[in-house]
């Protein structure tokens, strides 16, 4: 038995200082607080004071609102940079409409989702005929994209962006560009004439 108390020669400490407080036999002693505990308390006070001085007295740091706006601005810049790197303009959408895989995917989405209102041949039912040259909310590819993405709630066009996602919306627009101006007999034309021949790609 090597490891016993007697071996290490420790001496019993005197009783801690007594405050004299006695509650039902429970005495309150005034032992020194653990240093680490005291340090964390003092540290919290110092930090709190420094934090308050920094943000509330000298306004040296950004407020939460300012930080929020800065983050928004940064997100906007990032979106613009992305748009600049991969522009989603009329020409891009027209180019997408030349890719059979994209058009096939768009056609599938159109028939499962859009055909209920626009007709199986896009000839128009509740929604307008999409095969004529007339467009209520603009016939440029980017305008069609905007109409599908954001919808026209007042007229009954749902907001498809969040439901389908950007990719599927673009595929649907690509499909629409392949069937526009085919004049399938159906709902009579509504809206403004948009002449593809005059503005190819819509620039």
């Amino acid at each position: 038995m090597a490891d016993t108390l007697a071996d290490n020669g420790a001496v019993a400490p005197a009783d801690g200082p007594d405050t004299g407080h006695d509650y039902d036999g429970i005495r309150e002693l005034d032992n020194r607080l653990p240093n680490w505990w005291l340090a964390s308390l003092v540290g919290a006070i110092v930090f709190g004071f420094a934090y308050w001085t920094y943000y509330q007295v000298f306004h040296a740091g950004p407020t939460e609102m300012a930080a929020y706006h800065a983050e928004l601005a940064q997100a906007e810049r990032a979106a613009k940079a992305l748009q600049a790197a991969h522009p989603l303009d009329d020409a891009t959408l027209v180019a997408m409409s030349k890719k059979p895989a994209v058009v096939a995917a768009g056609s599938a989405t159109f028939h499962s989702t859009c055909a209920a209102c626009h007709g199986a041949n896009a000839q128009g039912l509740i929604g307008p005929n999409l095969t004529d040259a007339y467009w209520i909310h603009g016939g440029r590819p980017t305008e069609i994209l905007h109409t599908v993405t954001s919808g026209v709630p007042a007229k009954g066009m749902p907001t498809w962006g969040p439901v389908l996602g950007a990719t599927r919306v673009q595929q649907v627009v690509a499909y629409l560009l392949t069937i526009r101006d085919t004049d399938v007999p159906g709902k009579p034309p509504q809206g403004q004439l948009y002449q593809t021949a005059i503005a190819p790609g819509g620039k």
């Binding site: 490891d3 108390l5 290490n8 020669g9 420790a10 001496v11 019993a12 400490p13 009783d15 801690g16 002693l29 032992n31 020194r32 607080l33 653990p34 240093n35 680490w36 005291l38």
Partner: peptide, 27 residues
């Protein structure tokens, strides 16, 4: 480094000066 003799009046792991004493349990 010396473990103090345990007492109900104080923490065995905190020295009289408030320092943290490391406890080395025997096998």
């Amino acid at each position: 480094a010396l473990p103090p003799v345990p007492s109900l009046d104080r923490l065995a792991s905190i020295g009289r000066d408030g320092s943290h004493l490391s406890i080395e349990p025997a096998d």
